[in-house]
Each structure stands twice: as structure tokens, then as C-alpha cells.
Design a protein around this nucleic acid. Sequence first.
DNA 1: GGGGTGAGTCGAACCGGTTCGGCGAAGCTA
DNA 2: TAGCTTCGCCGAACCGGTTCGACTCACCCC
Lengths: 348, 348
Amino acid sequence: MNIGEIARRAGVSRSTVSYALSGKRPVSEDTRRKIQQVVDELGYQPSASARALANGRTSTLGLVFPPAGSHYTGMQLDFIGSVVEAAAAYDYDVLLSPSGVDSDRSFQRLLGERRVDGAILMEIRLEDDRVEHLATLDFPSVAIGRTARPESGWWVGLDHTALVERCVHHLADLGHRRVAFVNRPEQLLQTGYESAHRGLEGFTKAAAERGLTVRTYCCGDDAASGQTCVERILHDDPATTALVTLNEAALGGLYRGLAEAGRHVPRDFSVTGVVAGRWAETVTPQLTAADVPAAEMGRLAVDLLVERLDHPDAPPRHHLLTPPISLRASTGPAGTTPTADAAPDTTA
Amino acid sequence: MNIGEIARRAGVSRSTVSYALSGKRPVSEDTRRKIQQVVDELGYQPSASARALANGRTSTLGLVFPPAGSHYTGMQLDFIGSVVEAAAAYDYDVLLSPSGVDSDRSFQRLLGERRVDGAILMEIRLEDDRVEHLATLDFPSVAIGRTARPESGWWVGLDHTALVERCVHHLADLGHRRVAFVNRPEQLLQTGYESAHRGLEGFTKAAAERGLTVRTYCCGDDAASGQTCVERILHDDPATTALVTLNEAALGGLYRGLAEAGRHVPRDFSVTGVVAGRWAETVTPQLTAADVPAAEMGRLAVDLLVERLDHPDAPPRHHLLTPPISLRASTGPAGTTPTADAAPDTTA
DNA sequence: GGGGTGAGTCGAACCGGTTCGGCGAAGCTA
DNA sequence: TAGCTTCGCCGAACCGGTTCGACTCACCCC
């Protein structure tokens, strides 16, 4: 069922069928109806490969995310979902590519074999060879996250620095003086993972401004690591009364660690951070946090990419988001005797 | 940088370049080296579109999952991740298509425009028009989940019936007599969502065998719904001492509802179900559950699909998984006075 | 009535690969 | 040395669309 078959049955030439379907040249109403009828009868749909070859566009966007290896966070899931849906609204398909670095085979395929018209990159590092590579190639792409030199690029990012600062100020306002920071895994920090660095930066800065006593920790992306991390925190400084975290996946473990140490949240210990809203509402007490608007970010990234594809010479654009902190139930005033062990809990 | 360019620079014909690269016909060692050198210099990679057009294969698999609308569960995320990785190992890319039903435009594109060589379907319903459509077309596909008539198809599924039965028997063995079942949202049950139906079936069957008093509930895929659901359960039958759930996303809410009702898990109330291991370990106390091996299922689905693509006439195959229940900390013997309100908790 | 105009259609070239048939040279046998 | 095979390579056709230039015809106007 190719275009030649349609042409033959409609008694016209292949080019006429093409023009009738694309509307790029006028076709008489009669022939157009005849062609449409044949197309409907046979359920003809033009081959994506042939069309891509002919006009050089694949109508496909690449979504580059790090290889799972272990596990994804909920945030990443929301990104993927929203990107796919937003792309569908523009009639683009989405091709997934698990590539952490520029040299990955999957990444090379995406670009070298011209499988996609543009790409969205996730899990950006401050020095990201993928971003730079695409920039030098002038390949249409949008990053979810920003590198150390964001001015010239297309991206949508979260202002982790500001968000974590706000968390710290929130805690300081509540009277907390000894606060811990629970970051993403050490390996991510070392490879220059953006949110880990900027979050840490915001934490350090705000803590200095408020004269807080702080410690910072890296923590694996799972509950067990979270629990261990709390144990370390309370071991290193039992007078700690609050923590700020970027680590969604460890959150449940952090809560468990606190509970096992006899610290009641929020009476004895406050917890806050930057976490997707869905997760913040899953834990008990619900987490006071800057809710990561992952779905919105995915949508914005697609918007930007499509704009860039439609206007190849448009100047770079970006969106830096700073969602407000949602006050829930995991933070409270610092106790008067922060080092005291928690008393048995008799609240309902 | 097309194949003609390579041919010219290497002083051979286009077909020779093609054969040199594919190895489908012998090429002298000299010319092969010469060609390889030019290819390396220019960093040539053949166009995926052209290749797809020529040999009729796209080297792409479609992954069809329901439109997010609201949100995805952690399980789905794990599927997606493992499918992409497994596909990459076979040199296939993965194209995402958000389609709940056969008539979705995205789904039509995938098939009609021949964008993919095969498809993996998620979120299967007992009567699934997508599965049937693909079957009548003899289009290579593998379902993650099985329909009401699974014998003739290619699929990898979880034996929800058996798993939920085991959960019920586990609770019955512990002495629980009044048990609730927390299913996925009502809308999914009504549309014939497989796991919801088979899980419910297993629950009903095992409860009858053990002579338990049971109630079944549908629950939205979020924490707030979980909390509400527990309130309903305890309102409908305050003597309920345990629940079984399929609803990962509501789990945190279920725990919160129990805590607010003063029921301590596992002393006053036992919780179990079918949930991805990562989630089971996030809640406190950790959930005794049949861990959904999402990553393994994704991998197996790709294995099956690739096998089907390589051997178009191979007879249908499938994998029905029945992972063991992981005993964690959320279930315990039924209390002697199950209706009593929980006493203040003084355990460490 | 001749020439210009524009609508509608066609044929051919092209996108960038793959693959088939055949051809010339070299090597081997008789 | 003629004849046959084998090896290595080439040219051309093909996959299924898009697009450009040109052609035909009807119509209109001076």
C-alpha cells in the first residue's frame, strides 16, 4: 500500500497524490475527493521512513537520560511522562536514549544516524560534554538543567540554589541552629551533577548568612542509605535539629532513621528540602518542601525545543523556575532542649 | 557526508562501501582498510531513515503505555527503564507512545507509518483492543500483562491471582479474620485492567477458602486517596485487622490513615500486598509484600520481542512470574483484642 | 484571434542507503 | 593456451515518499 498504489487506483500520478494529501499545491476538488476516497478505503498511511528520508525530518525528538543502572527517581518519571505527552501534542514522537555521557553508543546513534530532529537532555552536569558537543554542532537541543555556563544555551532549570536557601531560611526562622544537608549520592556530586552542586551551594551560603552550624552529607538513592545517613548525622552531632534534602528516594529512609532514633518529626526534628510534590505527600508527616514541578518542566522543554526547530535562528531561550515552598507538616519550631531524647509520643 | 561521498573519497563504488561496512559480501582487505580509513576520518554514520527505507526495518521498538493524564506509578518507571536498557543491548531504540486504546492517534502512527519493528504494550486490560488488533495484523508485539485469552499470545505477566492469594493466606495464617482489599482506582477496574481484576479474583478466592470476612475497596493512585480509603475501611468495619493492596502509590496514605486512627503497624494492623520492592522498603515499617520484578519483566519482554522479530514463525511464548513474598515488618499476628484502640507507643 | 495567465496535473530527479546481476582479471586445470 | 571457476568490484534498480520544472488546457483580455 504505497503512494504508487493509491495513485494507480485513483487514476492520477504519484505527485498528485502527494500534493492532495499535503496541500502544498492546489488540487482540483474532484481529484482530491477521489484520492481521499481511495486512501480511506485502503487505510493508507505514508511510511515514516520514506518521508523522513525525503524531507530530512524524522518528526521524532530524542530524550536522553542516564542509564538506570540502579533506579530512577520519581522526578525523572514525571519528566518522561510530560515530555512524551507534550511532544505528542506537537505531533512528535519521543525516542529514548540512555546515555550519561557524550561517548555513549546510544547517544552517537541518535545524532550520527539522524534518528531525531532534536534532543532533550536530562541529568545535566555543570561541565557536560553532551551539552557542549551539541552546542558546537548547533544541533537543536534543550537541557533540563543548566551547566556552569548557561547564558548561551537553551534550557529549563530549577533554581536549586534559591530553593535550598529558602529551606535553610525557613528552618533558621523557626529557630534551628544546627542543620544537616542530605545531598544526592557522592558519585553524582563528584561527576558534577548540577542540582547536587547548586543545592549544596545554596545551603552553604544561606547557612553562613544565618550563622548556622552545619554538616553536609551525601546519601545513596534508596531508603536504606537514608536511614544510615540519619544515623551518621545524629552520631556526628546529636544536637542537630533539622535537615534539608534533595534526595527524594532516600526520604522514606530518613524518616525511618529519625523514628528509630526516637526523634519525632516535626516536634524534635524538622525535615525539608526539594522534592516532587507527590513524594512529599506520601510520607508522614507530609513534607514541607519546594515541590519540583517536573511535569511543567518537561512541557516547557518541549515547547522550547519545538520553537527552536521551527525557528532555527531564534536566539537562545530558557526558563528558570523557582517554585514556592509548600508548607506541610514536617517542620516546626526548634525545641528548647534540642539535645533531649524524645519523650514517648502520646499525640493522636 | 553520505555513502556516495565516502565512495568517492575511497575511490570505489557506493555498493562496495555498503558491502565493506555490512560484511554481506567479501571485500578485499586493501579496499576495506581504505574505506574504513575514510569512514573514520569523516566520522561517517549511515542515515537511519535511508537504511530503514531500504531494508524495511527501523531498528526501533515501540513502547506503548497509557497516557499519564495524572501520574505514573513507580512500577511503570521501572518497566520503561529496563525495556530501554534491554533494547539497547540488542541495538534497538525505543519509541514511546502514550496510548490507552487502539484508536489513539499515537498508536495509529506507530503502526500505520511503520515507525517501529515491534511493540511492547503495558497496562493490559482483560479485553484489550490493542492486543487483538495487533494479533489480527500479526504485528510483532509482546504484552506486559495478559488478556482474558492469553494462550495464543506473546506476553510476560505477573500472576496477580496467586500473589494476592498468598498474601491472604499469609494473613490468615497469622490469625487475621477480617481483612480488606485495597485495589487500584475504580475506573481502572471498570475498564478491565488486568492486575486489578486478577488480584481481586485471588483475594476473593483465598478469602473464601479461609472463611475470612472481607471487604474490597477501590482507591485512587495517590496518598490522599489511601488515607481516605483507610478511614472508610475502619468506618465500615472497625474490627478489620489487616489489608492487602495492589496500590503502590496509595501506600504512604494507607500508612498515614492507620497511624491517625491509632492503629500501629504491625501490632494492631497488618499490611501486605503486591508492590515494587523499592517502595516496600520506603515505608516504615517496611512492607511485607510480593515484590514486583518490574525490571526483570521489562527485560523479558524485550527478549521475547526480539526473538519474535528474529523468528517470525516461532510459536507464541510467554513468561508468567510468581515472585515470592518478601517478609519484612508490616505483618504480625492478629491481636487478641483487635477492636481495641491502640495504646500509646513506647517502643524504641 | 493571438497571447498572456493561472489552475491542475504529470514526469523525473532526488533523499541515502541496500542488493542483485554481471563483468573483468586472476588463478587453476587440462 | 583455451576454458572454467573464483574473487572483487561496479552499475543499476529499488525502497516510498517529496518537490521542481514543465506541460496542457481553459479562460480572459486587448
